[in-house]
Write a protein that binds this DNA or RNA. Structure first.
Lengths: 145, 145
DNA sequence: TATTGACCTGAAGTTAGGTTTAGATATTAT
DNA sequence: ATAATATCTAAACCTAACTTCAGGTCAATA
């Protein structure tokens, strides 16, 4: 049995965050002794899961839902799988968006590198995609389709 | 010269968003006729830039800064490049994080697919990484290093 | 002239995931 | 017994990028 301060050190999480998770229902039936929280192995397990699910981009309410399903056993496997399938779609499309953004930024970096060399943007303004270096042309193309 | 309603339709942006951008200083010296905003080519250009920079993940205040630098001409090329270089770092590390999250999620999807087939998690619990399919083992490994 | 519709403002509300604050209670050390 | 430290709660605050609201103005139509 651990106090909130001990858990805070163990997980490098602020005490306020642990209390917030508790308030959000992420530690159902956590024990209390004269009002003070007692974290057991069960809550430590929950915290490990929380850390993992947060990294997967799940929101607190989804994590809570997931934990509730876990408590219900094998009847909820398909709901849990569906949650992750949905999250997979979300993350995949975010990655796609980010890669487009990255191409746009790479183009901008190159653009200002050239502008700095030339001292002006004249050459850049009269430049067509086919005059650009292959890599930059690709990046430019990806952001304009 | 366009009204805020016309621009709202042109860019598929709510009127409230356009007023918000204006309040944040993204349309410096926009004309007004008896209090009513008049969007000219200059503001339309600005909006096109805003859309692009937002896709690059820049915050409003960065966009404002960028636009101010643009107004100052060639002396600010290096600041502008630095802004994008910094943003490049940010986006690249976000993409890395997302890819790790994706691997974690792929593992979870596979895990619950197996649990559904088996009707329980017994086989999964006694499974070692080397018993997993190559792709899943890779994903699992990536999220645990 | 009256009314409708588009526009204006400042202020407050929204969301998520916390953090901070104030004041109370509990535990531990001297 | 007292002082210091740790914990508790509810409520307010935080950020970013908007959105909504209440109340007022402006311009064109009936």
């Amino acid at each position: 049995m651990y106090t909130i301060g001990q858990i805070s050190e163990m997980f490098h999480l602020p005490i306020s965050t642990l209390r917030y998770y508790d308030k959000e229902g992420l530690f159902p039936d956590m024990e209390r002794v004269s009002g003070i929280r007692k974290f057991s192995e069960k809550e430590i397990e929950a915290l490990r899961a929380i850390e993992c699910l947060k990294k997967s981009g799940l929101e607190i309410k989804d994590i809570k839902q997931f934990m509730e399903w876990c408590g219900k056993g094998s009847e909820t496997y398909s709901q849990r799988r569906d949650l992750f399938l949905k999250q997979k779609e979300i993350i995949e499309s975010e990655i796609q968006r980010m890669n487009q953004a990255l191409d746009m930024i790479k183009f901008k970096c190159w653009y200002y590198e050239q502008a700095m060399k030339d001292g002006n943007e004249d050459r850049l303004h009269s430049m067509k995609p086919e005059d650009m270096p292959e890599e930059i042309r690709q990046a430019y193309k990806n952001t304009h389709k």
